[in-house]
Design a protein around this nucleic acid. Structure first.
Lengths: 336, 336
DNA sequence: CTGAAAGCGCTAACAT
DNA sequence: ATGTTAGCGCTTTCAG
């Protein structure tokens, strides 16, 4: 026996009511106690559950949120994905996932497919939206929230941490600890996140009449960052490096310890950004700026659902501040 | 302006053909060159794309695969998720993701929701299926593949590594390296993966007339495993521990080094299972059994799609063998 | 409060 | 090869 699909019609027959009565019961419209009871019983016996897809055809609500994500090897994203999924599940939505290599042509294709599924909203984790794409989503009336990525387009919502402020805190902390040769391995300079952190960092150093002894673009990649770090310690000889995110910072620490033979923090302080769970592991014990992913997810979901509920709600740009988590990968300021 | 939805009817009007002609063009049925051209042009200008959900209503194919996953903090799963998503994307499918805490009541709820979305197939990553659930999926004609989890039900497909053989290799390797006090921190004993690895390991030791000096259930949790390890080194004093997966092994190494003050592998050898990317990082440099996740994903997708294409295809149980990756967390056998 | 009827956007016979 | 017609399973007027 193939697929004996149970429809609302079957339930109606069994319950001795009309098909629309069944629909009403399951979509929470008005119905008398007795009808509800009869329908529920019949449905339970038959194992009936409404077809979300058929429903979406008429309500225009698929209860599907499209998530576009580029990397899953940076622990920040699986963690966020898990939280997002849970938060949305609670609100009756589910996540349709799309991997995009991060290249814009790829994002293009992916968002196209997303629209085919009539998603109610789109979250992009660390990937940008072309103007063309933004236009299409707007035309389709589908709200977009950029998660952990900023973009200067009023049609797009975004949720980030306060990257500039965070980077400034790091600079101040490093200076307070007496570091004098401070370097920076930035996140990908093509991303707002990478650029903002770098800008805030340089600003704060400048306020103390300092500037980085070296800067390199780590591109959010472990190997690139490790390479850059090894290069720096041979040439610029920094006594501290601010690395644009934890994911790269781990690679930097590994390279410095195991290839360059340096100790952290005695020879050199390393500071990251994100505070992924792994940062607390004893092997790294990484000082880092926390991005409060719980709050970021909450803001993302709130923003998105608000716009889904009412298309006239304006896009929101949210920046959430987080604390500097001081651990053992950095020298302590004297007064601590 | 709200949502000016463009339908196949609009395209038909613009192209001067019937609505079904448009449908044929987009579903790849027969159509003349000239019709195809007219339709494509009209569609491009209007920005038309077929509504997958409406299509699914009639074809019975949603092109959605439900993925149920319990943990994302073990790097093995994000990695697999990424591969699965890419592989399925290539075949025109997409992943609707569901987090299940791993508790059976939770899985129950989640699979229910999954069915509401008319998914074409289900993949569960490291979560089991109750009999009740299996029945419902079978009744609905929806194939299920257990990924990295075995279960003794002929209705379920599964893809795992050869856990028994893998664990045996580890035991043999440890013995060859001259270890005499070997302990085991197993994966969760409620999971096939955990049990099989333990069984294979004990078997292989027994073949050499040895037995573990200590065994504990690490439950696939970092803190539980770390605790167990610290306990073992105080009491049973093992000279090697086989830890049921890499995720726990990292915690064990950290605890041993930073809390117990031992060195790895000089004081004690640690071996893991999975070979997640992090195992190769210099800080851990973990000897481990590789689960070939690329091959496992491939098998999973093949199995699932084969069953979707033809419901009469029997469920498959696939176990894929992998190599032992020898790194620095274990003493080397003398002849190496 | 409830049933009958229309139709969401699409595909699949069925004719032509 | 193309248009016409009948639904897929559901929600939502509209009468009653």
């Amino acid at each position: 026996m193939p697929k004996p699909k149970i429809t609302s019609l079957d339930v109606a027959a069994k319950a001795g009511v009309s098909q629309s009565a069944v629909s009403r019961v399951f979509s929470g419209a008005s119905a008398s106690k007795s009808t509800v009871k009869k329908v529920r019983e019949a449905a339970d016996q038959l194992g009936y559950r409404p077809n979300v897809l058929a429903r979406s055809l008429i309500t225009g609500q698929s209860k599907i949120i499209g998530l576009v994500v580029a990397y899953l090897d940076n622990q920040f994203y699986p963690d966020a994905l898990e939280r997002l999924s849970n938060a949305l599940q609670e609100k009756g939505y589910h996540i349709l996932i799309f991997m995009a290599s991060g290249q814009s042509t790829d994002v293009e294709r992916v968002v196209g497919e997303l629209l085919d599924y009539q998603v109610d909203g789109i979250i992009t984790a660390s990937v940008g939206m072309s103007d063309e794409l933004t236009k299409r989503c707007e035309a389709a009336g589908i709200p977009v929230v950029l998660f952990n990525r900023g973009q200067d387009d009023p049609r797009l919502s975004q949720v980030t941490s306060d990257n500039r402020a965070g980077a400034r805190k790091i600079a101040d902390f490093l200076i307070a600890a007496g570091h004098e040769r401070i370097a920076h391995i930035s996140g990908w300079s093509g991303s707002s996140t990478g650029r903002e952190r770098q800008a805030g960092f340089i600003d704060a150093l400048a306020a103390h009449e300092m500037e980085p002894v070296a800067i390199a673009d780590g591109k959010f990649k472990r190997d690139v960052a490790a390479e850059a770090a090894l290069d720096m310690v041979m040439t610029a000889k920094p006594d501290a490096i601010f690395v644009g995110n934890d994911h790269m910072a781990f690679a930097v620490i590994d390279a410095l310890r195991h290839t360059a033979g340096l100790t952290v923090p005695n020879d050199i302080s390393i500071i990251g950004y994100d505070d992924v769970p792994m940062a607390a592991w004893p092997s790294y014990d990484l000082t880092t700026m926390r991005q409060p992913s719980g709050q970021m997810v909450e803001a993302t979901v709130d923003t998105l659902l608000a716009q889904i509920a009412d298309r006239s709600v304006a896009p929101q740009k949210t920046a959430i501040d987080g604390p500097l988590i001081v651990r053992g990968s950095s020298r302590k300021p004297k007064d601590m």
